[in-house]
């Protein structure tokens, strides 16, 4: 991973300048050797700008978590590059709020651990003040610093995980399925809280999830990942209103319609094996009329799916 810390951290401008906060280029990840070699990422490229939230969507096994792990350095990529142009740290929020908090530590110590290790506070008072502030920011009472994870519900624990990440004032937060284990109503609470924090702190987020319906509330742009290939990328609006790739369409159609009478049978049943689509032959195609909306496919497929409908007429 290459670090070059010369980025003007104050410019939240999107798509201006040629330096992105995070730039992933041709990321390849494979495991094993010889005939046991499995490639889980086939040259994934995307970028995230300062202050932006990028939603990475795909089903289990698509490689979305592997990308997150490569970014924070838990995995060493087999190929490609990850360029991070931030001055400050990257933090991660994990999926399971039950297993990612040490049950024997007080909430205050869990949240403050980064401060303690980095010796970021001059006095104990300052430390506790910062912890208290952060807990309030994520919607927990200050007193919870003295309590243990076991005394909290799943949603509250996930807030602790978020507080722990935010207290280090990171420039980038990688949130891997951070709401998947929560109840629908608690999901909504956490999503709205994250949204508020985004607006307040202008922290950049990489939001990894399989649930398009939640991702759209947080993301400025969405990338759709399947079988290790990034297939489609565009603004949240573009992806939802004008999806091109049949896999994206399938993902959107699978969101349950909360209307008991209108239950369309999901007819766009997309199976890679039988669809005739070959990902390895694909290349990037810019969708007409959609700003930064691109699809990874062959020329023929692109024509067939109507990505450049304007051009044809």
């Amino acid at each position: 991973m290459s670090h070059s810390g010369n980025k003007d951290a104050q410019s939240p401008a999107k798509n201006s300048g040629n330096e992105h906060l995070l730039k992933v280029t041709d990321l390849v990840q494979s495991f094993g050797q010889g005939k046991n070699k499995v490639t889980v990422l086939h040259g994934v490229s995307f970028h995230i700008d300062q202050g932006e939230t990028y939603g990475l969507v795909g089903e289990s096994g698509s490689g979305k978590s592997t990308i997150g792990k490569c970014i924070i350095g838990l995995n060493t990529p087999s190929g490609g590059s990850i360029e991070y142009n931030g001055d400050k740290s990257i933090q991660m929020i994990f999926q399971d709020p039950m297993s990612s908090l040490n049950p024997r530590r007080k909430i205050g110590d869990i949240v403050g651990m980064g401060l303690d290790i980095g010796k970021k506070c001059a006095s104990k008072q300052e430390r506790n003040e910062r912890i208290g502030e952060m807990l309030e920011k994520v919607g927990l009472p200050r007193e919870s610093a003295e309590r243990y994870p076991g005394q909290f519900s799943g949603g509250q624990r996930q807030r602790v995980g978020i507080a722990r990440a935010l207290i280090m004032e990171p420039e980038l937060i990688v949130a891997d399925e951070c709401i998947a284990a929560l109840d629908a109503s608690v999901q909504a609470q956490v999503v709205m809280m994250l949204k508020k924090l985004q607006a307040e702190t202008r922290t950049t987020f990489l939001f990894i999830s399989h649930d398009l319906s939640m991702v759209r509330y947080l993301s400025d742009r969405i990338g759709v990942l399947h079988l290790g290939y990034l297939l489609e990328e565009g603004s949240t609006e573009e992806i939802f209103l004008n999806p091109i790739h049949p896999y994206t369409k399938n993902l959107i159609a699978a969101i349950p319609v909360p209307n008991p009478v209108v239950q369309y049978k999901n007819e766009i049943r997309y199976e890679y094996g039988t669809s005739g689509v070959l990902y390895e032959d694909g290349s990037w195609h810019q969708v007409q009329g959609g700003k930064d909306h691109r699809v990874f496919c062959t020329d023929r497929e692109f024509k067939k799916w109507g990505g450049n409908a304007d051009e044809e007429e």
Partner: peptide
Amino acid sequence: AIPGTGLKGDLYS
């Protein structure tokens, strides 16, 4: 609090 497929508005909780 249901996230719909529409695009507008905030999510209620």
